[in-house]
C-alpha cells in the first residue's frame, strides 16, 4: 500500500488538499469519519479540505443500524467492549505500578554496579506487559470473530456489500481521526482491511494511528497521573515501521530526553514519529518520505530528529 499520514488537521486548509494532490491519483475520496461518532455526518468542510468530492462510508451510522437489526451481535459486541475496557484498565494499573518501581529502582541503583542491568530489566518488563496486552486483545477478538462470525451475519453483510460498492468508485481511502477505539471497532466490524485492495491511503490524527501495526495511546502531560503511554491493540497494519503520534504540542514532552528515550526504546523497533499539526509524511510500502516540516523521530538516546525517512 502507499499513502500519506498527517498530524491533526489545522485550520490551514491547503495542507490536506496538497497532500492528496501529491498522491497523483484522480477521482473522489472514500471517507471514513466513524471516529467522530455522532458527528460522523458533519463533513461539509471536507470536500474543500481534500480538494476532491467525497464518498462517505458512514461506518458509525451503519453500525448503529446493524446493532438495531441484530440484537445478539450488539449484546456480544458490548460484552467484548466491556472486557476490553476492563483489561485496558488492569494493564494501565500494572504499567503505572511498574513505572513507579522502575523509577524507585533507578534512583536506588544510581551509580551502583546494578544500574545498567536494572534499567534493562525495567524496560524488558514494560515491553513484556505491552506484548502480553496485545496478545490478550488479539485473543479476545479472535474468539469473538470465531464465535459470532460477524461478516456472515445478514445485517453486517448487507452493509458491507454497500460499502464495497461505494469503494469501487474510488481510488483513495481517507480516514479521519477522533475516538480511536470507536473507529477501530467500526473498521473491524465491517472487515474494511479486506475491502481496500489497492486503494491509496490518506489518514490523519487517530486515523493515522489505527492504520499502524499497533495503536499507541499517549499523553505525557495529563492533568492526573504520570502520563505513561499505553497500547490499545494491534492496528490495521496498512503501513509499517512507524507509530504515528499526532498532535505532540500538548501531548508530548519532546524536550525531556529521559521520556523521549524511554518511549522510543519501549516501542522499538517501531519508530515513534510525532506529527505536528499540519505535518505530513508519505509511504510507499516500507519506504517513508517526509513531505513537510514538523515530523519528529523520537530516538532511543532521547534525542529528537527531523532526519528519519528511509
Amino acid at each position: 500500500m502507499r499513502g500519506v499520514l498527517l498530524g491533526t488537521l489545522g485550520p490551514e486548509k491547503p495542507t490536506l488538499a496538497g497532500a492528496v494532490r501529491a498522491l497523483e491519483v484522480d477521482g473522489p475520496v472514500a471517507l471514513i469519519t466513524a471516529g467522530w461518532q455522532e458527528y460522523e455526518g458533519q463533513v461539509e468542510e471536507l470536500p474543500e479540505k481534500l480538494g476532491r468530492d467525497i464518498v462517505p462510508l458512514d461506518l458509525y451510522r451503519r453500525t448503529e443500524r446493524v446493532f438495531a437489526e441484530d440484537a445478539e451481535l450488539r449484546a456480544e459486541h458490548r460484552a467484548l467492549q466491556e472486557t476490553l475496557r476492563t483489561g485496558q484498565e488492569y494493564y494501565r494499573l500494572r504499567l503505572a505500578r511498574s513505572l513507579d518501581a522502575a523509577l524507585d529502582i533507578a534512583r536506588f541503583a544510581r551509580g551502583s554496579p546494578l544500574e545498567a542491568d536494572e534499567a534493562r530489566l525495567s524496560m524488558s518488563y514494560m515491553r513484556a506487559m505491552d506484548r502480553d496486552h496485545l496478545d490478550r486483545v488479539q485473543g479476545l477478538r479472535r474468539d469473538f470473530d470465531e464465535r459470532m462470525q460477524p461478516l456472515r451475519r445478514p445485517a453486517v453483510a448487507r452493509q458491507r456489500a454497500e460499502i464495497a460498492r461505494l469503494l469501487q468508485g474510488t481510488r483513495i481511502l481517507a480516514i479521519a481521526g477522533g475516538h480511536v477505539a470507536v473507529l477501530l471497532n467500526r473498521l473491524r466490524l465491517f472487515g474494511i482491511s479486506d475491502l481496500v485492495e489497492d486503494k491509496v491511503l490518506v489518514a490523519w490524527g487517530g486515523g493515522a494511528m489505527v492504520t499502524a501495526e499497533r495503536v499507541l495511546l499517549f499523553h505525557e502531560d495529563p492533568p492526573q497521573g504520570e502520563g505513561i503511554s499505553e497500547l490499545l491493540e494491534p492496528g490495521l497494519g496498512f503501513h509499517t515501521g512507524i507509530l504515528p503520534l499526532p498532535g505532540p504540542r500538548h501531548r508530548l514532552k519532546l524536550q525531556d530526553r529521559e521520556r523521549v528515550g524511554w518511549l522510543a526504546r519501549r516501542h522499538a523497533p517501531f519508530k515513534c514519529i510525532a506529527l505536528d499539526n499540519g505535518a505530513h509524511v508519505s509511504f510507499d510500502g516500507p519506504r517513508w518520505f517526509a513531505d513537510s516540516e514538523g515530523s519528529h523521530w523520537l530516538r532511543e538516546d532521547g534525542s529528537v530528529s527531523e532526519e528519519w525517512v528511509s
Binding site: 491533526t8 488537521l9 471516529g35 481521526g177 477522533g178 475516538h179 480511536v180 477505539a181 490524527g205 487517530g206 494511528m209 495511546l217 499517549f218 499523553h219 495529563p222 499505553e230 499526532p246 498532535g247
Partner: peptide, 8 residues
C-alpha cells in the same frame, strides 16, 4: 476526559 482515546 477522553484525552487518551481521542486524536482529532
Amino acid at each position: 476526559g477522553p484525552l487518551l482515546m481521542v486524536y482529532e
